[in-house]
Design a protein around this nucleic acid. Structure first.
Ligand SMILES: NC(=O)c1ccc[n+]([C@@H]2O[C@H](COP(=O)([O-])OP(=O)(O)OC[C@H]3O[C@@H](n4cnc5c(N)ncnc54)[C@H](O)[C@@H]3O)[C@@H](O)[C@H]2O)c1
Ligand SMILES: NC(=O)c1ccc[n+]([C@@H]2O[C@H](COP(=O)([O-])OP(=O)(O)OC[C@H]3O[C@@H](n4cnc5c(N)ncnc54)[C@H](O)[C@@H]3O)[C@@H](O)[C@H]2O)c1
Lengths: 209, 209
DNA sequence: TATAAGTCGTGATTAATTTCACAATTAAGT
DNA sequence: ACTTAATTGTGAAATTAATCACGACTTATA
């Protein structure tokens, strides 16, 4: 697969760059400098140039970057033309918000099915996405490689095991539980309560200037 | 203020440690080793020991850490006894989810008011929290230092300016907009679409073993 | 054509973070 | 009391990421 040489910190910024380049193109801009990008996405311009340079020389000295070219390049790099199907597990407060939103705007990702235990939800649709009973997970989820976990923390381990057994590759975990998975499965934790507490901690202990 | 010496990476993990120590205490455990903590929170045990060491020698060699002592220490460090009031701006899909949840479980934080433009929402309550019209922001928000932003991206800049004018210190920004703020204001971006895309990118380009 | 202003790509440097690895210490068992 | 197993705290090394700073090149303009 491609280059493993790209630093993880860079990889995490790529979708951000891509989205902003899309905006630029919609605005009809044809060229952009690392300085302009920097102001917009709040990443140091040297870091942006360095990030881009891992993919080769994408810009022109004294000129900047051609928006269309750069966008096309990132479209390929980020596999924007392939759709990655996603399953959502747990149609509660957060899950419902994600179903309604469904990451339509920019993405190469789409939630295609959801699961819950609540008989009132099972059998209905939200945003056109069917909600199945979690007991039907094994029958329905084949082929889907990515799951979003928005169930109670107490359910996280057992549901994760079932997802892993069905061959899931990646999990975006919103529960506070730090789930255990085999090595070949990638988990990204998004822990909203921790994020809020961390912000508060920084405010109190890291006064800004 | 305390020590600025604590690395930011460490500071971000503190709420996580705290929550897990709480769980341990509820389970009646009185001692814990960095290895056990490591298994639970998925952070290398050496990193945990290093993190703790910034606060002094909190454990005992050959024994581990006393749960009650450690918990008490972090309670103070994380200001768990002071309540930080939070305002939520934008009661849509995400905002409603946050209001219902309200970070009650562990936290020293509480959403105390919400704002929206939608006349159907203004004047109602969700989870006991009143929803005001955004036009009343300036009159109502005094004293609140932290805001959660869950409005459309197009509104992010103008609302941010108003928050800054009213003296906000920290913003948890869920919009895709990279907002501009003065130096003394801290913004944490949580960009869910980017998180999902980054996960997908890692799956395709960083095969795990 | 010459000049000035702008901007990239990158070597070198610095900073931040993680991990290794082990002496020192403790607890527990015999 | 002695031995064994466990576990911390931390210096040193390794890894990862961010930033500086400048030569080389591009464009625009006179
Ligand atoms: N809502 C928030 O703002 C918020 C913030 C931080 C963290 N979280 C975490 O996100 C997760 C979801 O939060 P929420 O507020 O949406 O909770 P919720 O209780 O509203 O929703 C959970 C949903 O999962 C379903 N469910 C329960 N067990 C299930 C199972 N075994 N299989 C499938 N579905 C199952 C429930 O029926 C419910 O619909 C929780 O772990 C919570 O701690 C939520
Ligand atoms: N819902 C998701 O899953 C999701 C995922 C990723 C990012 N986001 C981002 O989070 C933000 C909120 O998403 P959402 O799905 O909740 O959107 P939404 O449209 O459901 O909610 C936005 C709410 O903000 C209110 N609003 C509009 N202008 C306002 C203003 N000036 N002041 C106060 N309130 C105002 C609207 O009335 C609405 O209730 C968006 O920026 C979105 O891009 C959402």
């Amino acid at each position: 697969m491609d280059q493993n040489k790209i630093p993880q910190a860079t990889a995490k910024r790529l979708p951000l760059y891509y989205r902003f380049l899309n905006n630029l193109q919609h605005q009809g801009k044809t060229r952009v400098s690392s300085k302009e990008l920097s102001d917009a996405v709040k990443v140091d311009s040297a870091t942006i140039r360095r990030d881009f340079s891992y993919f080769g020389a994408l810009g022109k000295k004294g000129y900047g970057y051609n928006v269309e070219y750069l966008l096309g390049f990132f479209r390929k790099t980020l596999d924007q033309d392939e759709l990655t199907e996603v399953a959502l597990i747990g149609v509660g407060n957060l899950g419902t918000a994600f179903l309604n939103y469904n990451f339509v705007k920019n993405n190469n990702t789409k939630i295609v099915m959801a699961f819950d235990t609540d008989p009132e939800k099972v059998g209905t649709e939200i945003g056109g996405i069917p909600i199945y009973h979690i007991d039907d997970l094994e029958g329905k989820i084949s082929g889907v490689k990515v799951a979003i976990l928005t169930i109670p923390a107490s359910e996280a381990d057992s549901v994760t095991d079932r997802l892993v057994t069905k061959g899931i590759s990646g999990i975006l975990n919103f529960t506070p539980a730090r789930i255990t998975v085999p090595e070949h499965v990638r988990v990204h934790h998004i822990d909203l309560a921790v994020e809020l507490q961390a912000l508060v901690y920084f405010l109190k202990h890291y006064p800004l200037d």
